[in-house]
Write a protein that binds this DNA or RNA. Structure first.
Lengths: 136, 136
DNA sequence: TATAAACTATACCAAATGAATATACTTTAG
DNA sequence: CTAAAGTATATTCATTTGGTATAGTTTATA
């Protein structure tokens, strides 16, 4: 029941960008050393963030990364889902095939977990990176 | 960000016991086959539940397992923590040693995650097995 | 009081996942 | 045209997960 290391790094990378002047491009090397993240691993994580439309990348010399939208419109949930895929606290909630009770409707535990998960998602959505960067 | 299989099995085992007349002893073999859980694995899981005081075990011939307290006093959180240990959505929240920002106080992300985690725990605590067994 | 049917305790194992690195490639400012 | 940036894929190593195996211990009951 834990977010993985990559997600934690992603939080910090996005927070770092959120603290800069909007639109500022920072290169991976800088983010990596300032936030204490292994460089090559960071690059890999950044690609997930780019694909999710959270971060914009600039290639070539003097390239780097910047937020793709205002920090206030990026939530913890956005970052979690960009890195780890959809939040699902139980396999059954993602793929009913795995439920040997054949789906939540028949299984009170899975119905309860579904509602717990909904609350969890909503809670992760409550925090955006403008707030976290102290810019709200 | 997912509960593991053992926890899912534990939910079902406890739910099975909760549906019986209070105090009824069921043997592992029965629970395993009725709930479709590998027998030896179930036995291992049951020991965590026994240690946590959720289930009582009876050894020897005609032994088995029964709830150690009323189903209404056993929550989803109790079972999760019995099987997986303390809920912590981020390593830093359990062990500040892992936080390269040196603890939640200095790190807005970890402060936010701490509050998300508190909500998650509270939510898991809202469901008890009397309710889930349809006996409330 | 022997015994077989139950749970207990360790230890082990294979597969999946997690965390990170390596190698080769593509883009682009100057 | 070249060096400094990001991209893409594959590989490696360690840990966790999910489960099994082997060897006990307890206890109802014949």
């Amino acid at each position: 029941m834990r977010l993985n290391q990559a997600t934690d790094y992603a939080f910090r990378a996005v927070l770092y960008l959120a603290k800069l002047e909007p639109g500022t491009i920072a290169e991976a090397q800088t983010i990596a050393s300032r936030e204490d993240i292994p460089m090559r691993f960071l690059l890999k994580i950044m690609r997930s963030l780019v694909q999710a439309g959270i971060v914009q990348s600039y290639r070539g010399i003097s390239g780097g990364f910047a937020l793709a939208r205002p920090a206030g419109e990026i939530t913890l949930l956005d970052v979690v889902e960009a890195v780890e895929g959809p939040v699902s606290i139980n396999r059954c909630l993602l793929d009913p095939e795995y439920c040997n009770k054949h789906g939540a409707p028949h299984c009170p535990v899975h119905r309860a977990l579904g509602s717990v998960q909904a609350v969890l998602r909503r809670e992760l959505e409550r925090y955006n990176f403008a707030e976290l960067a102290g810019k709200s």
